[in-house]
């Protein structure tokens, strides 16, 4: 009787835990940082930016800067084709030749860095890398007639240096035709993503931050005064973005191993039980045959 009561208590406890699990699972996941999540794409949600995300892409728009940051996985496995398709689909931009193109090695792979300039109004800064059978495209598109903004990642020439100045100078020369000497160094500013070095001139400003072995550089012609906010938002997207790996086949393998071992354990009990019954039947037969 007492054993039955114990068994009933165990059943009740397991039942209660299962029910609680079902109820709590409906409350959703606990997250500390708000993230856009799709099947594989995980992108930090930018506070203060209008969320224009769709089912399988993250997109945030800042109206006063006429700037949009977008992250998507394009199906093409050719980076230039993927970038072209994504910019065309999202912004109606016909992609031409980039005014800047390079590659950087980050922790999650080799990224292509591309900057496109479409005249007075539109610039597009893109980071893209191959992922699975497609291409991850993270783009910053700015359409402010009063500004021309480019955001790019440059591998440090000297990774022992904790100063982005050489890469800022390189970006200025590559993208604007100006000389770094046209700008004067302002004081460093502290943003959530890190310590940024700022250069300012009459018609242009530039800022950069070292992270890992790369410098994250932001350039802006014109003077809307929002470069720090744009650079911070783009960096937050770049550094916070990640892809959920498809590890489902490993789970299937793991479950197969569990069932094989448990099956072998339980099966061995049945197999030995069967052997025992055969032996018993044989002995009973022998006992019956004895005179």
């Amino acid at each position: 009787m007492m054993m039955m009561r114990t068994a009933i208590r165990i059943v009740a406890l397991i039942g209660a835990l299962l029910t609680t699990g079902l109820v709590m699972s409906e409350d959703g996941e606990e997250t500390t940082t708000p993230y856009f999540q799709s099947r594989a794409l995980n992108v930090p949600i930018l506070a203060g930016w209008e969320d224009q995300s769709g089912e399988d892409f993250a997109q945030f728009h800042l109206a006063e800067a006429e700037a949009t940051i977008r992250a998507a996985i394009a199906p093409q496995d050719d980076i230039i084709a993927a970038v072209g398709a994504d910019l065309n689909d999202a912004f109606g931009i016909e992609v031409g030749q980039p005014i800047y193109q390079d590659k950087v090695n980050l922790a999650d792979g080799t990224w292509s860095v591309l900057v496109f300039d479409y005249g007075e109004e539109t610039t597009a800064s893109v980071m893209a890398r191959l992922a699975g059978g497609g291409t991850v495209v993270i783009s910053f598109v700015e359409r402010d007639p009063a500004a021309r903004t480019a955001l790019l990642t440059v591998a440090q020439a000297d990774d022992a240096l904790d100063d982005p100045t050489p890469e800022i100078a390189f970006a200025i020369e590559s993208l604007t035709g100006m000389s770094p000497s046209d700008l004067s160094r302002a004081e460093s500013i502290r943003l959530p993503s890190g310590e940024w070095t700022v250069y300012a001139g009459a018609s242009m400003s530039a800022m950069g931050m070292v992270f890992g072995n790369d410098s994250y550089v932001a350039l802006q012609e014109g003077a809307p005064g929002n470069l720090a906010a744009l650079a911070e938002a783009y960096n937050r997207t770049l550094l916070g973005f990640f892809i959920t790996p498809d590890s489902s086949h490993y789970l299937a393998l793991g479950m197969a191993v569990v069932f094989v071992i448990l099956g072998a354990l339980v099966g061995s009990l049945f197999w030995r039980e069967r052997g025992l019954r055969k032996d018993l039947a044989l002995l009973e037969q022998l006992a019956g045959e004895e005179p």
Partner: peptide, 16 residues
Amino acid sequence: LKVAGADIQQGEIQRI
């Protein structure tokens, strides 16, 4: 395998 949410950093293998 079904009720608990998937881990976004590890993917499905976390369920093991």
